[in-house]
Every structure is written in structure tokens, then in C-alpha cells.
Amino acid sequence: MIQTGSIVLVDPARRERRLAELRHRRMLLRGLRDDVDLAWRGLLPADVDGSWRSAAQRGYSERRRELADELCRARRDLEDAITAIEAAIAAIAASA
């Protein structure tokens, strides 16, 4: 018998389906995390602050920083989700 959250897995076939589902989710989350990371790196500010002087340019630069911060938070949330899924996989595998 395996308990994952409120679900108890007794049937080995059901356990394998759950493991496959969790592994698939982990794969999707890793891909999304990698995409978010790539987008975040693309928004990191270049060293051009000294040459950007207009209000529009400063606003553009600030908005890029805000977006980069949001992507950084999203990446951390995705990492937390991946860690939770890996813990669930380990728990199911250990109880087999």
C-alpha cells in the first residue's frame, strides 16, 4: 500500500501509472523552467544605463527589470513544484 497525499495506491499497475504521470509532469515542468530561465536571461539588463537618458528609455529599462524579477519568481516556483514532484516520486518508489 502506498499513500500519496490523500490517495492510497495498493495496485502495482495503479502505482506505475501514478509514477508515469508524475514523471511526465516533472518533464513538462523542467521544460517550462528552462524556457522561463532563457526568457529571464534575455531580460537581464545590459550595461547601458549611462547611455540611456530619456524618460522613455528609463521606463523601458525599469519594465525589463520588473519582468526579469517576475520571471525569477516564476522560476523559483517551478523549482519548488519540481522538488515536490521528485519527493512524491521518491516516496512512491521507496514504498514499492
Rank of each mutant, 00 (worst) to 15 (best):
M1A: 13
M1P: 12
I2W: 06
I2E: 08
I2G: 05
Q3F: 05
Q3A: 02
T4Y: 07
T4C: 05
G5W: 09
S6W: 13
S6K: 13
S6E: 13
I7V: 11
I7E: 13
I7N: 08
L9N: 02
L9P: 12
D11I: 08
P12I: 07
A13D: 10
A13E: 13
R15G: 00
R15F: 07
R15Y: 01
R15I: 06
R18Y: 03
R18W: 00
R18T: 08
L19K: 03
L22Y: 14
R23W: 00
H24G: 06
H24T: 08
R25W: 07
R25Y: 06
R26D: 03
R26Q: 12
M27A: 13
L28F: 06
L28R: 14
L28E: 14
L29S: 07
R30V: 01
R30I: 04
G31I: 04
G31K: 11
G31T: 05
L32M: 05
R33M: 05
D35C: 05
D35Q: 15
D37W: 04
L38Y: 11
A39F: 03
R41D: 10
R41L: 01
R41G: 00
G42N: 15
G42P: 04
L43Y: 11
L44Y: 12
P45S: 00
P45E: 11
D47N: 15
V48F: 02
V48K: 12
D49N: 09
D49Y: 04
G50Y: 04
S51D: 08
S51A: 12
W52Q: 15
R53F: 01
A55L: 10
A55H: 05
A55C: 01
A56L: 13
A56N: 12
Q57G: 14
R58W: 01
G59F: 03
Y60F: 14
S61V: 09
E62F: 08
R63C: 02
R63L: 14
R64F: 03
R65K: 09
R65I: 04
E66F: 10
L67I: 12
A68L: 08
D69P: 07
E70P: 00
E70M: 12
L71F: 11
L71G: 08
C72K: 09
R73C: 03
A74H: 01
A74L: 15
A74R: 14
R76Q: 14
R76L: 11
R76T: 14
D77Y: 03
L78Q: 13
E79M: 02
D80C: 02
I82G: 03
I82R: 06
I82L: 00
T83W: 02
A84M: 01
A87P: 09
A88I: 04
A88G: 06
I89P: 11
I89M: 00
A90P: 14
A91K: 14
I92D: 06
I92T: 02
I92Q: 02
S95P: 08
